Simulated scan of single mutants.
Amino acid sequence: MSTANFQSIPTLDYSLATSDPESKSKFISQLRSVLINVGFLYLSNTPVDKDLITKVKRDYIPRLFDLPQVEKDQIKMANSPHFLGYSRMGMELTKGEVDWREQFDFGTGCERERSLKEGEPDYWNVYGPSQYPREEQLPGFRVLFEAYLAQLSALASDFLRLVSEALGLPPDTLDQFYKTDDRMHLSKIVKYPVQRESRQGVGAHYDGAMLTFLLQASEEHRGLQAQNLHGEWIDVPPKPDTFVINFGRSLEFVTQGVVRATSHRVLAPPLDSTTPRYSVPFFYSGMDLEVRVDESVLKSECLNI
């Protein structure tokens, strides 16, 4: 298994975690090493419907970005108090440089506007409905993508319990950060075009969520890179029938640094490419907004590492 100065990203077989106790024990041991030393992994043999994944990648993502600009702008993020919707190319910066990507942000679990009750803090405004293209613009897309997100949510919930076990804790320990039903996880659909101005698709950063599940939707394109402790950038190329998982700052924080969040970036396709790079990150991020630091259920003496 890799060390903190890893040179490649390990692959874990999810089916081991759902079979006999001996196989699960092997999976838990592998996951523990990744949590502490790497922060990135490929996950294979998940229960997410492969036909659903294929339809998202091939039938809808290119058509989503090929919608007329005026129709994409109708659901731009600026229209949403919940920071959900479409963003044009070059609308975000990382470390002062433009991220050359076009994207749609979606949330899960909030079908309608949530009116703030008297006395509620403004941060509850982050929960609200997503903006989708109208059905006549992209027939079937919303139903299909919401089904995909539901399966990712279930997988992420089960995987988080395995993370607890890998830390030597009861399986439901990390569930305690997700107590309320009123929560929302986030996803993006991202296009990185062939870029002349810069190779920065998105600059070096850490994710904020507990877990990120990434579907690399363009198997012909590399671009994702993770940084080891020597500062070297390690390629995380697309690998068929896998998700890339990385651990975010929230998990690093609640484990008091036992789990490491790993810096990563995406390079835009090189000039000799003929197609853009597409990716679909899912952020298991819907933690209870009322959780307080002094309520942390993970004290350092409880981590059996």
Rank of each mutant, 00 (worst) to 15 (best):
L149H: 13
L149V: 15
L149D: 04
A150E: 09
A150R: 03
Q151L: 10
S153N: 13
L155H: 01
A156I: 09
A156L: 14
S157V: 10
S157A: 15
D158P: 00
F159C: 07
L160M: 10
R161W: 04
R161N: 08
R161C: 10
S164V: 04
E165I: 08
E165V: 06
E165Y: 01
L167S: 10
G168I: 09
P170L: 14
P171V: 00
T173S: 12
L174C: 14
D175Q: 00
D175R: 01
D175A: 02
D175K: 02
Q176V: 02
Q176I: 05
F177A: 10
Y178C: 00
Y178R: 06
Y178D: 00
Y178S: 04
K179E: 15
D182L: 14
D182P: 00
M184N: 04
M184D: 14
M184S: 11
H185C: 03
H185K: 05
H185T: 06
L186P: 00
L186F: 07
S187W: 02
S187P: 05
K188G: 07
K188D: 11
I189K: 14
I189G: 09
V190M: 12
V190H: 03
V190I: 11
Y192C: 05
P193I: 09
P193F: 01
V194A: 03
V194F: 11
R196H: 11
R196C: 07
E197S: 14
E197W: 02
S198L: 05
R199G: 02
R199F: 03
R199L: 07
R199H: 06
Q200P: 03
Q200L: 06
Q200R: 06
Q200E: 05
G201D: 06
V202R: 00
V202M: 08
G203F: 00
G203L: 13
G203C: 05
A204S: 15
D207C: 15
G208K: 12
A209E: 10
A209N: 08
L211I: 12
L211A: 05
L211Y: 01
T212G: 02
T212K: 13
T212S: 14
F213K: 06
F213P: 06
